[in-house]
Simulated assay, not measured.
Amino acid sequence: MSEKKYKSLKAFYPFYLSEHRNTTSRILHFIGTGLVCLAFFTGFLFHNWHFFLAMPVLGYGFAWLGHLFFEKNKPATFQYPLYSLASDFILFYDLLTGKQSFVVKN
């Protein structure tokens, strides 16, 4: 992992993308972030706090599996927790809208 200190999310996001180049890992991140969104809205709609407790497990569980087994790198969450969390949602949106592809070409 890079030791560079990022001063903005805009500067961090290219590094985040470089740590998420594996297709399976991107799919796992997409599923995890999608389930986090679903859990949030379900918890809110049904006033059930159990869904809110599940959010970190869903989001980090899928993402960390992607890093451990497919990216084979350490999640950026450990060094840049807020930038990494924001970048998860940016990547989710970019994948959803087609701005980013699930398949990264070298």
Rank of each mutant, 00 (worst) to 15 (best):
G66S: 09
L17H: 01
K4N: 05
P81K: 00
Y93G: 07
G34Q: 15
S101Y: 10
P56F: 06
S101P: 14
K74R: 14
L85Y: 12
F51K: 09
G98P: 15
H20P: 00
Y60P: 05
Y93F: 14
S2I: 07
K105C: 11
H47F: 15
F41M: 06
H50E: 12
W49E: 12
G32N: 08
A39G: 12
Q79I: 02
S87C: 08
F46A: 14
I31C: 07
G59C: 08
T33Q: 13
E3M: 06
Y13S: 05
Q100K: 15
P56I: 01
T33F: 07
M1F: 09
W49V: 13
L28E: 07
P14M: 05
L35S: 11
L53R: 13
R26L: 09
L53Y: 10
T77E: 03
F52M: 06
V104W: 12
P81W: 05
L45W: 11
W49S: 12
Q79Y: 02
L58H: 00
E3V: 06
T24F: 10
T97N: 12
A54N: 01
V104M: 09
L65D: 02
K105Y: 15
L65E: 03
G98A: 06
V36L: 14
W49M: 11
R26D: 01
F70K: 03
S84G: 01
H47A: 15
T77M: 02
Y16K: 06
G59L: 09
D94P: 11
N22I: 06
L82S: 05
T24N: 09
L85W: 08
I27F: 08
F89K: 08
M1T: 04
F69E: 00
F62M: 14
Y80S: 03
I90D: 10
Y16Q: 06
E19Q: 07
G66M: 10
M55Y: 04
F12H: 04
L95Y: 11
M1S: 01
F46I: 14
D94I: 00
G66H: 09
F89D: 02
N73T: 00
F15C: 01
T42G: 07
V57D: 03
F69G: 02
L17C: 07
F92T: 02
H29I: 01
D88N: 00
H29D: 01
V104T: 14
Y6L: 03
S18R: 13
I31P: 13
A86Y: 10
Y13E: 03
Y93C: 03
S101N: 15
F46V: 03
A63G: 02
L38F: 15
D88V: 05
S18T: 10
F89P: 14
N22E: 10
H29N: 12
N22H: 14
F46Y: 13
I27Q: 13
N106Y: 06
H67P: 04
T24K: 08
Y80F: 13
N22V: 08
L91E: 11
K10L: 01
L82A: 04
C37Y: 15
G34K: 04
A76C: 11
E3S: 11
L38Q: 13
L95H: 09
G32K: 11
A39D: 07
H67I: 00
L28A: 07
L28P: 05
F52R: 06
Y80M: 03
G43Q: 11
K72H: 13
G43K: 05
